[in-house]
Simulated scan of single mutants.
Amino acid sequence: MSAPARRSVLITGASAGIGEAFARAYARRGWDLILTARRRERLEALADVLTPSGVKAHVVPADLGADDGADRLLAALRSQGLSPDGLVNNAGYSRTSGFLASEWADHDAMIRVMLTAPVKLAHGLAPAMVERGYGRIVNVASLAGTMPATGGDTLYGPIKSFLIKASQGLHLELRDRGVHVTALCPGYTYSEFHDVNGSREEVSAAYPRWMWMTAEAVVEAGIEGVEANRPRVIPGLANRLLSGLAQHLPNGMALRMVGGHARRLKRL
Results as ranks from 00 to 15, higher is better:
118 P>N: 00
55 V>N: 14
51 T>L: 07
78 R>L: 03
47 A>P: 09
220 E>H: 13
103 E>L: 10
83 S>M: 09
199 S>K: 14
252 G>P: 07
241 L>Q: 06
18 I>W: 02
33 L>P: 13
237 L>I: 12
214 T>F: 03
209 R>T: 12
75 A>C: 08
68 D>H: 14
207 Y>E: 04
139 N>D: 00
254 A>H: 11
67 D>Q: 15
103 E>A: 14
172 L>E: 13
169 G>R: 06
144 A>E: 06
146 T>I: 07
172 L>A: 13
89 N>K: 11
259 G>V: 07
145 G>C: 03
89 N>M: 09
30 G>T: 13
232 R>N: 02
5 A>L: 14
264 R>C: 01
187 G>R: 01
260 G>D: 01
87 L>I: 08
241 L>Y: 02
265 L>R: 14
21 A>W: 06
142 S>K: 02
268 L>G: 14
233 V>P: 09
116 T>K: 15
36 T>F: 10
243 S>E: 11
178 G>F: 03
177 R>D: 01
191 S>T: 15
70 A>G: 13
141 A>N: 05
86 G>T: 06
117 A>R: 07
24 R>N: 10
187 G>K: 01
153 D>E: 15
257 M>L: 14
66 A>K: 14
126 A>S: 08
226 V>Q: 08
53 S>V: 11
82 L>T: 07
164 I>T: 05
102 S>E: 11
15 S>N: 13
93 Y>C: 02
177 R>M: 03
204 S>A: 09
29 R>F: 13
255 L>S: 15
191 S>F: 06
93 Y>W: 11
86 G>I: 00
129 M>W: 00
36 T>V: 04
204 S>I: 00
19 G>V: 03
33 L>Y: 12
218 V>Q: 00
46 L>H: 05
206 A>H: 06
137 I>K: 09
43 L>C: 08
186 P>M: 04
151 G>W: 12
